[in-house]
């Protein structure tokens, strides 16, 4: 893989050593107002029977170190995307703290939040529509992140976008084509190029391969592994598919109904699951 020049005009964000890149502490996200019954913490159901509030996640803690891949697995509605949205500063948690590169960013808003998103974080969503502008070219979608970070030289933006484009194994003649005309797998590649555009230290992947053909899925997973080996990023990958997690993750969180029910080294958890839910999950997979 050829080396992609770092964007000189973008002041790179420094990664302090001795601290995780991303650290969540006791994150709770509540949709709805809550009541005494569910706020007390004794109620562990995802939906409060008294007030009807839904807990996207509850008391979730995690940390990810440079070069590490953390997997989050769980059934639909278990809160995986919620945890990722908190990590990407898309939503502010109801309680708990978020640390990015050692700084508490729990209450980051406006400009600061935009800066962190632009320089410290990259994200790939399950649905490309949520992240890419369909009537904008592949190059433009990748360029947007550099422009958002304050880069103002057209040739430099374009050549870096093109380098990322080809590095994600996208055909060069599709660089100036609107992504609305791309296949699902190609869109995920564009999302990856966009996420990496500003060389962020943290990469968040929300179901990066679901909804793709199996063969396409395998090629995207290979690409993610290569990106990981190459850039030494801290990666959080969310999936309901244990095969994906097994292939990518060093460590693993198992979520169910908004709670983390088990965590540990991926091999360990999958070899010897402790929680009945994880046991069910593993046996269903094999």
């Amino acid at each position: 893989m050829k080396t992609i020049p770092a964007p000189a005009a973008i002041e790179p964000i420094s990664v302090p050593s001795g601290t995780p890149c991303l650290e969540l502490r006791d994150i709770t996200v509540r949709y709805g107002r809550g009541c005494d019954h569910c706020r007390s913490g004794e109620m562990r159901a995802q939906r409060c029977t008294h007030c009807g509030s839904v807990y996207g996640c509850r008391d979730v803690s995690l940390d990810v170190w440079p070069g590490e891949v953390l997997g989050i697995v769980g059934e639909s509605g278990s809160g995986k995307s919620t945890v990722l949205a908190v990590s990407n500063l898309d939503i502010q948690p109801t309680s708990g703290s978020v640390k990015l590169l050692g700084d508490d960013v729990s209450s980051a808003e406006g400009k600061q939040r935009r800066r962190l998103r632009a320089l410290a974080l990259g994200i790939v969503y399950q649905s490309a529509q949520a992240n890419l502008l369909m009537d904008v070219t592949a190059g433009g979608n990748v360029a947007e992140r550099m422009l958002g970070a304050g880069w103002r030289r057209y040739d430099a933006v374009r050549s870096r976008a093109l380098a990322l484009h080809t590095d994600m194994e996208l055909p060069e003649d599709r660089f100036d084509v609107p992504v609305g005309m791309f296949s699902g797998g190609m869109r995920q590649r564009v999302q990856l190029a966009k996420a990496l555009a500003t060389s962020p230290p943290v990469l968040l992947l929300d179901e990066p391969t679901s909804g793709l053909d199996v063969s396409v899925q395998a090629r995207i997973l290979d690409l993610i592994r290569r990106i990981h080996a190459e850039f030494q990023l801290a990666i959080v990958v969310v999936s309901h598919d244990l095969a994906v997690i097994r292939m990518l993750a060093d460590r693993l969180l198992v979520m169910r109904r908004g709670l983390v029910v088990e965590h540990g080294l991926t091999d360990q958890v999958l070899e010897d699951p402790q929680h009945p839910y994880t046991q069910l999950l593993v046996s269903a997979q094999l």
Binding site: G110, K111, G139, A143, Y154
Partner: peptide, 19 residues
């Protein structure tokens, strides 16, 4: 405007030059 978040209009300009 308030956050001086003008990347969308810069993107518009980028697309003009690309196309």
């Amino acid at each position: 405007h308030a956050e001086r978040d003008y990347s969308a209009i810069w993107l518009y300009l980028y697309e003009d030059h690309a196309r």
